[in-house]
Computed example of a mutant assay.
Amino acid sequence: MLTTTTVKVLQPGELQDALAVLDRDPVANAFVAARVQVAGLDPWRLGGEMWGWYVGGRLESLCYAGANLVPVCAGPEAVRGFAERARRQGRRCSSIVGPAGATSALWALLEPHWGPAREVRAHQPLMVTSTLPADIPPDPHVRRVRKHEMDLIMPACVAMFTEEVGISPLAGDGGLLYQARVAELVGAGRSFARVEDGKVVFKAEIGAATDRACQIQGVWVAPEHRGKGLSETGMAAVLRYALQDVAPLASLYVNDYNTAARAAYRRVGFEEVGAFMSVLF
């Protein structure tokens, strides 16, 4: 019996079906789930289209197609369907990011048409925890960044982004979109920092957040303060906020070559549960 498969843009009325797919893996799907829970499926509010892979009329997989291209619960056939749609549309995203298996397969199909990438990070361990560390006290000086402190936190955010991604977030539009995102996290009470002598020496944010899981991002220690253990006590503090105020699970993903960060996260209690992959343009 031939089973009909297709890829199409989800309509707002399919929200519950989309959420059911996203709920299969609340940790890996936190970024997309958080956007959908806030914005629904309207492309203008969502910041991109949500593509669906249907088997026999049933929604089985998703792909968020906005500033990032993100496969969700996508097996080999779904990946091929999403790749064909993305190839026909042409590249509109600045990155492809998601679970390593699906993202690798998607990139293999798109690279002949979209390549070369600026950088490929093929293995980024996905780490998760549901508990606070027993032997690392939270840094009492790490606190929420206040709404009037944008001038304080922005230089640290720009430094972190440039160091992590390899380009400045101020390029292109002068940083307007990046500044708006930082302001959004500050306004939501999900930006944290330790400040000494008027300068940020540690910072991190709780980025994507649902009622099931949240994702810690943007972890940064000022270069002159590295090696002092601030990343561990700082992360313990952010983790306390995350687990008490946001969600029962906290996750992050980290470059595999960043052995120091991976070790610090393990000491705070994070365990590797999978891997992401990022293709940067």
Rank of each mutant, 00 (worst) to 15 (best):
160 M>K: 10
224 E>L: 14
177 L>N: 14
92 R>G: 05
46 L>W: 15
42 D>M: 00
250 A>G: 08
247 A>F: 12
144 R>E: 14
242 A>C: 03
203 K>A: 11
183 A>G: 12
11 Q>R: 13
132 L>Q: 05
1 M>Y: 08
36 V>Y: 08
210 T>N: 13
268 V>F: 03
214 C>W: 10
121 R>M: 03
268 V>H: 06
167 I>V: 06
195 V>R: 06
72 V>N: 15
63 C>N: 09
3 T>R: 10
281 F>I: 02
28 A>D: 02
44 W>Q: 06
234 G>N: 09
129 T>H: 07
133 P>M: 01
160 M>G: 03
86 A>N: 07
179 Q>F: 06
242 A>I: 06
7 V>H: 06
28 A>R: 08
229 G>D: 08
233 T>F: 02
117 A>N: 01
8 K>T: 14
111 E>M: 00
266 R>L: 06
62 L>K: 12
71 P>D: 07
124 Q>Y: 00
228 K>Y: 01
88 R>A: 11
135 D>T: 05
91 R>H: 11
90 G>L: 07
12 P>E: 11
62 L>H: 07
177 L>M: 10
255 N>C: 14
181 R>C: 07
146 R>N: 08
188 A>P: 05
249 L>F: 08
142 V>W: 12
178 Y>A: 15
13 G>C: 13
9 V>G: 08
279 V>G: 07
96 I>F: 01
267 R>S: 03
160 M>Q: 04
166 G>Q: 05
232 E>K: 11
41 L>T: 08
186 V>F: 12
214 C>H: 12
172 G>I: 03
24 R>H: 14
135 D>I: 01
253 Y>R: 00
227 G>R: 09
105 A>M: 06
264 A>S: 11
255 N>E: 13
141 H>M: 13
96 I>P: 08
267 R>G: 03
194 R>A: 04
240 R>C: 02
7 V>N: 01
235 M>I: 07
278 S>Y: 03
137 P>V: 02
241 Y>K: 00
239 L>M: 04
191 S>C: 03
217 Q>K: 14
81 G>K: 02
69 L>K: 06
162 T>F: 04
159 A>S: 07
68 N>D: 14
125 P>F: 02
86 A>R: 09
236 A>P: 01
21 V>T: 01
103 T>W: 09
112 P>F: 07
235 M>G: 05
226 R>G: 10
188 A>G: 05
174 G>L: 00
18 A>Y: 09
257 Y>S: 03
24 R>N: 15
43 P>A: 01
189 G>C: 04
